[in-house]
């Protein structure tokens, strides 16, 4: 059976974040390079229909941060998931280069693992790390994201039928019922459980309620769903990796084969379209690590050159008064 491959997050930094960081750096942080908590956001992966060729083009699997990422009381727009993370800004390019990235990364991965074992809080599964160096005089910002994800050994495999449309399992009424229930949740759930009632209705619950919710449901009838930032039909999004690690760590007896629903419908489809969500059955060899030891994690973002290295946002054309003046003529 083919190995499941996950689409990594692609970072999208709004220029407003760099403006905010500049302000913070000058007025508050000054020379401190202590870690600052930030929040990002991702939402259901979007695809756009190319009007000229009629093809569906999947948009990148973005995790976005902006000026509001520093606000603790930021109210998320509807339908987005808000992973928390850590920003570490260095004072000099030398410090940035010399940063002990392995330690920083492992610290973040350790936090996720602790949350899995202790708090069982799925909101912490998508923690991320961002290291930056801001060259304020040249309006250049060096940054490097890491999205830690636990590696399963052996890897998860998907049944030969691959990812099928969710309509094969849930009829449109059930899917709209799931959509409706998601909308009425007090917080937007990044992950949720789906259960078919004897009456034919479906109900959903947060993953934290796994034991209670599935108390009388055999493993084959369980469906575990996640909000999928990937619009690619064959690669599920990055958040699924840590969910699978979570399930294996906490409920090893019932999760060697799981049915996963990739939730990809932010809105009910128009009458002429179909539901985009997909369903697939994933399995892992039962011998996969059952110890409570933390599995190794991966997830440094590659730069546009495809290498493991930092990225650069050059905002001089949009921030430097000299270039702006030249532009205006």
């Amino acid at each position: 059976m083919p190995i499941v491959q996950f689409a990594p997050f692609a970072s999208l930094v709004q220029p407003s974040l760099w403006h905010k960081l500049t302000e913070l750096k000058i007025d508050i942080l000054k020379l401190s390079d202590a870690a600052v908590p930030i929040t990002g956001s991702y939402s259901i992966g979007r695809s756009v229909k190319d009007r000229e060729t009629g093809q569906e083009i999947a948009l990148p699997c973005n995790l976005t941060i902006g000026s509001e990422s520093f606000e603790e009381a930021h109210k998320p727009p509807r339908g987005s998931v808000f992973p928390v993370g850590t920003l570490k800004n260095y004072n000099t390019i030398e410090d940035f280069k010399a940063a002990d990235k392995t330690t920083l990364f492992n610290y973040e991965a350790e936090l996720i693992w602790d949350h899995i074992l202790k708090t069982r809080d799925t909101a912490q599964l998508n923690r991320f790390l961002l290291i930056t160096f801001a060259d304020l005089k040249k309006y250049k910002y060096y940054y490097w994201f890491a999205f830690p994800a636990f590696v399963s050994k052996p890897a998860w495999e998907i049944g030969d039928e691959g990812w099928a449309n969710a309509a094969s399992e849930f009829n449109p009424e059930k899917l709209s019922s799931i959509h409706g229930q998601l909308q009425t949740q007090p917080t937007h759930l990044p992950y949720f459980l789906v259960k078919k009632e004897a009456s034919g209705d479906v109900i959903i619950a947060p993953v934290e309620d796994y034991e209670k919710f599935y108390a009388s449901v055999p493993p084959e009838a369980q469906t575990i769903a996640f909000v999928d930032p990937s619009a690619d039909p064959s690669n599920p999004g990055w958040p699924l990796r840590n969910l699978l690690a979570y399930l294996r760590a906490l409920y090893p007896a019932t999760t060697s084969t799981v049915r996963i629903l990739r939730w990809r419908d932010s809105e009910p489809p128009s009458p002429s379209a179909t539901w985009k969500s997909q369903i697939g059955t994933l399995s892992v060899a039962a011998a996969a690590s059952l110890s409570s030891e933390r599995p190794s994690a991966v997830g440094w973002e590659k730069n546009p050159q495809g290498k493991l290295g930092p990225r650069l946002a050059d905002l001089a054309p949009m921030m430097d008064p000299t270039s702006l003046a030249a532009q205006a003529v």
Binding site: P2, I3, V4, Q5, F6, A7, P8, I93, F96, K97, K101, T102, F105, Y142, V151, S152, A155, W156, I158, G162, W163, D232, S234, N235, R241, V298, G299, W300, K302, N303, G306, K307, L308, G309, P310, R311, L312
Partner: peptide, 29 residues
Amino acid sequence: IPDMEEDDLEDGDEATAAPKPKAPAPAAV
């Protein structure tokens, strides 16, 4: 861009969807 490519930072991970236009993973569905 500072010269800090660190390919040894993490080993190749078979479950990461690779940038396939360059190297299609044989295991791809």
